[in-house]
Design a protein around this nucleic acid. Structure first.
Length: 700
DNA sequence: GTCGGTGCCCTTTTT
DNA sequence: GGGCACCGAC
């Protein structure tokens, strides 16, 4: 059956879908049918006789790619086989595995995640004798700096100056750690997330055969969420597209929320220069949200600096205004959110209701409340599935079976045995690396449990089992350890292992299974998602939509995050983040502002100002409610005409933000923000963030 | 070398 | 609530 594209798409969408050759840039506003456009283009290409294997679809998650594929199959009423899709990282990984010999990597490589990386850095810190200084940054912070500097392609020094000026005093030592980390990875054939991209680029650049092979192989490239690609990713796209440049990039600069990872809007802005002859299509009609929600989100966006201005218009669907709830505290907020969810659940299924927040930990109180009354939910973002301690342990065992020279795995897996600590693990690794079996025997002689464990691993190594069978055996070995280690939530963790077995069943290569496990966040989609409430970080909610969206913790230092106060660019990103969050809603949008925040250390409540993004919203765009002493919400009536927001113009008067100044006691610092009329927030390397009167400062 | 207890710290976002 | 360093006991 033929698809009637003219009828099912609007003119702009149709133009994008039927543009098959030459570079195409689609600027797609929120809710403008971006996914629909990609899906129809996929179908269109296949219908025109393009082999699916010639198409490369790069998306933000692998799930997004497979969903688009699924939808295209539905339209065409036929299966599409052999399409290549996934994230930049997973695609790069696949290609590097395939062509590892071209890079001279006879040993192959393993992919490490953030926690492996921080393990290495912790070790580096210890070996370089930097662990005694309590003020020295944590391994996690150092990893973050290293990764940022690579993603933004700036020196460590520059990154620290931009990001964490107060750490500048540690620059030299951080550089030493970074060097240690780099050498460690090289020695053990480990690639972190950033390496995947840079080495893939290197492969494409150096090896002309590989490059032209891939250019011919993937004659049609589509890249989703292009605003969130960084410099290397941009260059990779360019190298893959080659001279034919049948490349379609889809994005929205207003929804760029990954600048912290080095994403640059420049990739979108410069696209027409990078690919001469680019056709630009703008999708501006919003099909998603009701008019009141759209008016509200347009207002948030109107105060942002957008580079590709769009005029989003809609079919003018009516609905309630967004609601704003002032709750007494973040704890009562959790209860009121649950109440609201129960109320909404009378009209909407649970899976059409989502609660969004800035950071993973912000949903803890809510999770407790939901648990109390038995509402099931699915959480996205925050801790990864594969980062849960028991899953990490299991993975470490699997890694030891496939590769006995994996130091990180030794420590994690065998550290679980009584009497075995870091030093013993190091020795064990050396035994295998140097084939020193006498040392091995003497270690085993001291510890019977260790001996049995090593024998078990050895016999598994010889069996060469399929991933699922191997995993089953490893679980058998691990179960007694787990029973002792995780007494309180054992059933939940057992269920997690069942899930892991499910996932393993699709693979026939253990190494591939392991690599995917570290690269994919949402492996949980096998589980029944049916009718479960969604809790999600905003970053993980990207590209998704629900009938009802509730956003919590809209207060200073939580949203925007207090880390974002470091520079105005991050603050802009927080605004876009709120824009992304609000535009996820189709019919109902609820915003929660706790007026007090519970302080765990002191056990008291502290008043907190509402988010500046909320303060600037005119009264006529939202309906406000306030919690009374009995935990009930009351509508706040707005009398008279709405006042213009006071904070509206504030954001541009940071005359000297980002510049430097001198203070007699604190020394040289970086200007973070101007607090009208006469105060400044300054970041001092050795004293942290301070609010200082302008009179005491000397500006450079 | 390892283990368990204590006390202190700060909590972003993701591949 | 968890990471991290330290300290004393085995």
């Amino acid at each position: 059956m033929k698809v009637n594209y003219e009828q099912e798409l609007n003119p702009a969408q149709l133009k994008a879908v039927t543009h098959t050759h030459g570079p195409l840039l689609v600027i797609a506003g929120a809710g403008s049918g971006k996914t629909r456009t990609i899906v129809y283009r996929l179908a269109y290409l296949v219908e025109k006789g393009v082999f699916p294997a010639e198409i490369l679809l790069l998306t933000f998650t692998r799930k997004a790619a497979s969903e688009m594929l699924f939808r295209a199959e539905n339209i065409l009423e036929q299966q599409i086989h052999g399409l290549n899709g996934g994230t930049f990282h997973s695609f790069a990984c696949t290609m590097l595995k395939k062509f590892s010999l071209n890079l001279g990597w006879e040993e192959g490589f393993s992919v490490i995640d953030q926690s492996d990386a921080t393990d290495i850095i912790r070790q580096a810190k210890y070996n370089l004798n930097l662990h005694k200084d309590k003020t020295f940054p944590k391994p996690h912070t150092i990893y973050d700096l290293i990764s940022r500097s690579r993603n933004k392609e700036l020196s460590l020094e520059q990154t620290i100056v931009n990001q964490s000026y107060h750490l500048l005093t540690f620059l030299e030592d951080i550089e030493k750690i970074a060097d240690y980390y780099k050498k460690f990875k090289a020695k053990h054939f480990l690639l972190d997330y950033d390496d995947l991209l840079f080495f893939f680029e290197q492969l494409l650049q150096q090896d002309q055969n590989v490059r032209s092979f891939l250019q011919q192989r993937f004659s049609f490239i589509m890249v989703d969420e292009f605003q969130d690609t960084n410099k290397v990713q941009g260059r990779i796209v360019q190298l893959l597209a080659g001279p034919s440049a049948n490349i379609m990039a889809v994005g929205d600069d207003a929804q760029s929320i990954y600048a912290f990872r080095g994403a640059s809007v420049e990739n979108i802005l410069n696209f027409p220069q990078t690919f001469p002859g680019t056709t630009i299509v703008k999708l501006e009609q919003n099909y998603r949200s009701t008019q009141p929600i759209l008016s509200f989100t347009n207002h948030i966006l109107s105060l942002a600096q957008e580079k590709y201005p769009k005029k989003l218009f809609s079919e003018n669907i009516q609905g309630p205004k967004p609601e704003l709830f002032y709750t007494k505290s973040d704890l009562s907020q959790a209860q009121l959110v649950v109440k609201k969810i129960q109320e909404l659940s009378l009209s909407y299924p649970y899976h059409e209701i989502a609660v969004l927040f800035r950071a993973g930990y912000q949903s803890y109180a809510l999770e407790m409340e939901l648990g109390k009354i038995g509402i099931k939910f699915q959480k996205f973002g925050g801790q990864k599935f594969s980062e849960a301690a028991h899953i990490k342990d299991i993975i470490a065992f699997l890694r030891l079976v496939t590769n006995p020279c994996d130091v990180l795995a030794w420590t994690r897996a065998l550290g679980n045995i009584k009497g075995v600590g870091p030093k013993t693990c190091q020795k064990l690794y050396q035994c295998f690396f140097e084939a020193n079996f006498s040392l091995l025997d003497s270690l085993c002689a001291k510890n019977q449990e260790l001996k049995t464990m090593l024998q078990q691993l050895d016999s598994l190594r010889q069996k060469k089992l399929a991933p699922q069978d191997l995993l089953e055996e490893v679980i058998k070995i691990y179960t007694p350890i787990m029973e002792e280690k995780f007494v309180d939530d054992l059933p939940k963790r057992m269920a997690g292992l069942e899930q892991l077995l499910q996932i393993a069943s699709i693979y026939d290569d253990v190494e591939l299974f392991l690599a995917d496990l570290t690269l994919e966040t949402s492996l949980e989609d096998r589980e029944e998602l049916k009718d479960k409430l969604v809790l999600s970080t905003i970053h993980s909610a990207k590209g998704l939509e629900w009938d009802c969206v509730l956003i919590i913790d809209l207060v200073e230092e939580r949203f925007p995050s207090r880390h974002a106060l470091m520079d105005p660019k991050s603050l802009e990103e927080e605004r876009r983040l709120l824009y992304v969050a609000c535009t996820r809603a189709r019919k109902y949008l609820g915003l929660f502002v706790p007026t007090n925040i519970y302080n765990r250390y002191q056990g008291n409540f502290e008043p907190r100002a509402p988010s500046p993004f909320i303060r600037e919203v005119p009264d006529d765009l939202i309906q406000k409610y306030q919690e009374d002493h009995f935990g009930t919400l009351h509508q706040i009536d707005v009398l008279g005409p709405s006042k213009p927001p006071k904070t509206g113009q504030q954001k541009h008067d940071f005359t000297s933000t980002g510049s430097y100044c001198l203070h007699k006691i604190f020394g040289r610092g970086k200007v973070i923000a101007h607090i009208p009329p006469n105060k400044y927030k300054i970041h001092f390397p050795e004293h942290g963030l301070k609010t200082v009167l302008a009179d005491y400062l000397e500006f450079e």
